[in-house]
Write a protein that binds this DNA or RNA. Structure first.
Lengths: 325, 325
DNA sequence: CTGTTAGCGCATTCAA
DNA sequence: TTGAATGCGCTAACAG
C-alpha cells in the first residue's frame, strides 16, 4: 500500500479494487487521516476553489455599505453553489502577491483605493473580473454612469435651479472639502468622474452654471462625512435649492438634516441620489435616485469569472422617482 | 546560483552578500519572477496568513446584517494590521476540510446553522475562536444573553402586560411560525434560548403568564419575515401590548407596521429589541434595546486568535432606554 | 558566504 | 490493479 494508492483511493475510486479501497479508507480513519491535504493538493493541481474578492477599500469600510453588501451577496450566491470560497482582500493593501498564489482568480469590486494595487492587478496572470472599472484585457462589468447621472439630474433641474453636487471621492484624499480646482479631478476612469460628467451635461442643457463653491468632495460613502457636508451646505447663503448626490448614503443625511431644519422638500430643496438602496425608497420623503441592481452585478461578475470570460459587460439601471424632487 | 540562494535573497538578506543579492533580484525581475510562490511557501512553512471567518449562515445572508457587519469590521481592523486575510466560510456548508488546510485557524461568529459543521469544528486541530457559542477546549467570546434579555424585558413589563415574544430561530426550521410546543426549543446552547429564558424569568417575576399563541419563531433576522410576523401579531384580538424581540432588525418592522396602523407607542404597544443597531436608536420612536458592541467583539475575537488563547471571555452590554416602552 | 540535500503532502506518469 | 519514482515550489539544515 503506497501513497499513490491511497491517493487513488480518495480521488479515483475506479483505479483500484473496491476491497482495497475500503481497506485503505478504514485504515485512514483509524490513523486520523481525513483525506488529502488541500494545500498540498492545490500546490500540485494549481486549483484552489478560492476566489479573491478585491474590495475598493478596507474590509472595515466595505461591510458597512449596503450597496457593496448586495454585490457580495450576488457573488456569494453563485460561488457558494460551486463550493468556491471567498477570500477578502483590502483595496488599501498593495501586496496582491500575498494571496494570488492561493486563489483561482480575482473579482475586483470598484477601483481599489491603492493605485499600486491596480498596477499589480493588471499584471495578474489568473482570471480577473473587474466591476465598476476596467483593466485592459480582463473581463468587466459596468453600468453607464454618465448617462444615469444625466438622467437623474435632468429630473431635478429646471431654469431656477441653484445647483450643488455632493461628489464621492472626486479627489484622491481622505478629507471632506470643496472642489475648487475642478481640473484636479481624475477625468479618466473613476465612476465619480463619469457621474460628474453626466451632471455637468444636464446642468448645461438647462442653461445653468455651477458655482465654484458648489462641489463637495466627500471621501467615502458614509454618514459621518455626509452629515458635515449637509450642514455646510444648508448653512450657505444663498442656499442651493438642488443637490445632486453621487450616492444615496450621502443624500439621506442631507434629507434628514434638512427635515430637522424645517426646509421644505422638494419646494425649497430638491435632492437626488444614486444607487437605490432600500432605506432611500423607504425614507420620507422618498429619494429620487438611480437604482442599480447590485446583487445582479455580483451574480454576473461571478458568472463571467466561472466562464473564464474576458467580455466587457454593460448592465442596465432604473430611474426611481421619489418625493425628493 | 542555486534555488536555495534565491530563496535566501528574498527571505534572509543577511545570509548572502549584498552584491549577490542584487544580482539575483535583478535576474529575477528580468525573468518575471516576483518572489516565492505563497502556496508552496505555506505548504513548506505551515503558515498561511489567512484566517477563516466561519459565518452562522450563508454569506449571502450574513452581509446584510448590520450586527454581523460590525463584527466583521472589528475582526478585519485587527487582522488587516497584521496582513492577515479573511476567508469567508458559509455556516450552511459542512466541508471545513475544503479550507482548513489553507488557513492558520478559524474565527466562528455564531453557532453555524449546519450541525455537521459544528462537529467538524470541534475536531479542528488549529486555533479556533468561537463567538456567541462555545466549543469544548477552544477560546470563546460571549455576552450574558440571559441576563441582558431579563434586563430589557423587565423594563417593558408591568402587571397589565399582555406579552408576546418574537423569537429568532427558536426552532430549527426556515419557516415563520408560532411556537406552540415550547419543548421543541433547543434548550442547550443557542443564544435564542438564553434570551428566551431571560424573558421567561422576567415574565414570571411580574406574575404574568405567556399565552400559548404568543411566541413566534422567526427563522432569520430579516425584514421580510419580521413584516409578516408583525402583521400577524397586530391583527390578533386581543392584541398583545408588549412584544419582546430577539433582535432590533425584527423589532423595527413591528414598529413601522404599528405606526402605519396608528397604534400608539408605547401606550398601546411596548416593544423592546436586542443588539442596539444604529437604525433602532435613530428610529422614531426610538427602540429600547440591549446594545452590544459588536465591533469590540470582533476585535477581541481577533486578539484571542492572535494570542493563541483558549480563554473563555465574557463581554459586557448596555441597556439603552428608548421611547418604545 | 554559498550550494547541496532532503522533504512539506500530494498526484501523475510508467513499469511491473 | 498496484507501487516506485518524479516533481509541484519552496525552505531548513547542513556541508563546503
Amino acid at each position: 500500500m503506497s501513497n499513490a494508492t491511497v491517493s487513488n483511493a480518495f480521488n479515483r475510486p475506479d483505479q483500484l479494487s473496491k476491497s482495497k479501497r475500503e481497506e485503505i479508507l478504514k485504515a485512514c480513519k483509524e490513523l486520523g487521516y481525513f483525506g488529502p491535504n488541500k494545500a498540498a493538493q492545490s500546490l500540485r493541481k494549481g486549483s484552489f476553489n478560492i476566489v479573491a474578492l478585491v474590495l475598493p477599500d478596507s474590509v472595515e469600510y466595505m461591510v458597512s455599505d449596503p450597496v457593496a453588501s448586495s454585490f457580495m451577496r450576488g457573488v456569494a450566491s453563485v460561488l457558494e453553489a460551486q463550493h468556491i470560497n471567498l477570500l477578502l482582500f483590502s483595496g488599501t493593501a498593495d501586496n496582491v502577491g500575498d494571496i494570488v498564489d492561493f486563489v483561482d482568480g480575482l473579482i475586483c469590486y470598484g477601483r481599489p483605493r491603492n493605485p499600486k494595487l491596480i498596477e499589480h492587478l493588471a499584471n495578474v496572470s489568473k482570471q480577473v473580473v473587474t466591476v465598476d472599472f476596467d483593466l485592459p484585457s480582463h473581463a468587466s462589468i459596468n453600468i453607464d454612469n454618465q448617462q444615469a447621472a444625466f438622467d437623474v439630474a435632468s429630473k431635478a433641474l429646471n431654469d431656477e435651479s441653484d445647483v450643488a453636487i455632493f461628489g464621492l471621492r472626486l479627489l484622491d484624499t481622505d478629507l471632506l472639502c470643496r472642489v475648487y480646482e475642478q481640473s484636479l479631478i481624475d477625468l479618466e476612469t473613476s465612476i465619480a468622474h463619469q457621474r460628474y460628467s453626466g451632471y455637468l451635461k444636464a446642468i448645461e442643457e438647462c442653461g445653468l452654471t455651477l458655482g465654484e463653491d458648489r462641489v463637495w468632495n466627500i471621501p467615502e460613502s458614509s454618514e459621518r462625512f455626509a452629515n458635515i457636508a449637509a450642514k455646510e451646505l444648508l448653512n450657505l447663503s444663498p442656499r442651493p435649492n438642488t443637490v445632486l448626490c453621487m450616492s444615496d448614503l450621502i443624500a439621506l443625511p442631507l434629507l434628514r438634516e434638512a427635515k430637522k431644519l424645517g426646509v421644505k422638500i422638494p419646494q425649497e430643496l430638491k435632492v437626488v441620489g444614486f444607487d437605490g438602496v432600500d432605506e432611500a425608497l423607504r425614507f420620507s420623503p422618498s429619494l429620487t435616485t438611480i437604482h442599480q441592481n447590485s446583487e445582479e452585478k455580483g451574480r454576473e461578475a461571478a458568472k463571467l469569472f466561472l466562464d473564464k470570460s474576458d467580455a466587457k459587460v454593460m448592465l442596465g439601471y432604473t430611474l426611481k422617482m421619489g418625493q425628493s424632487c
